[in-house]
Amino acid sequence: MEMVASPKKIQRIHPKKFALWMAMLSMIMLFSALTSAYIVQKASSDWLQFPLPQQFFYSTAVILSCSIVLHVAYKAFVDKNYQLYKLLLSLGFGLAVSFVALQYSGWLILNEMGVFVYTNQSSSFFVLLVGVHALHVLGGIAALLISWIFAMRKNTMEWSQKGQLRLELTCTYWHFVDVLWLYLLGFLWLQQ
C-alpha cells in the first residue's frame, strides 16, 4: 500500500522496441523450423558431407565486428559526437555489405567443388539456411542505409529522440542477425 503513497515511475518498454522483439520471435520460429527440418532429413537420406569454405568463417568475423562498430556508433550518436558517428556508421555499412559479399564468394567456391543447390539434400539445406539468413541481413542493410542517408544528408546533425530510437532499433536488429548467424554456423559445424 505504500506504493500508492509514493508513486514510482516504472517505464514500460517502448512499443516499437517491443514490436521488434515480437518480430524477432517470429524469425526465431522460422529458423527453428528450418533447422528442425534439416535434422529430420539428415537422419533419413543419403547425406553428402562437404567442408565449409574459409569465407564463411571470415564472414563471421566481419559480422561480429559490424555489430561492435554499430554499437559504438550508437554510443557516439547518444554522446552527440557526430563526426565519429558518421565515420562508424559508414564503416558498419561497409562491413555489412562485405558480409554478404564474402558469403557469396564462399558459395562460388563450393560451386567450383561441384556442390550446387540441387546436388544433395545437404547442399539444398545449406543454401536454404544461409540464403534465408542473408535475406534477413539484407533487411538490416536496408535499415542501415536509411540511417546512413539521414546522417549524410545534413551537414550539422541534430539529436532527436526519434533518430535515437531508430538507430537503437537498427542496432538491436543487427545484433539479432549476428547471433542468428552464430547459431547457424554452430549448427552447421556440429552437423558436420
Binding site: 517470429s26 524469425m27 539444398s124
Partner: peptide
C-alpha cells in the same frame, strides 16, 4: 499466429526451392 505462420513460410521457401531450383526437399 506469430509463432506458427513463420513455420508455414519455411515450408513455402522449401516448396519454392523444389519448384525453381531443382532441389528435392
Amino acid at each position: 499466429a506469430l509463432l506458427s505462420f513463420p513455420v508455414l513460410a519455411s515450408g513455402f521457401f522449401m516448396l519454392t526451392f523444389d519448384r525453381v531450383l531443382g532441389t528435392s526437399f
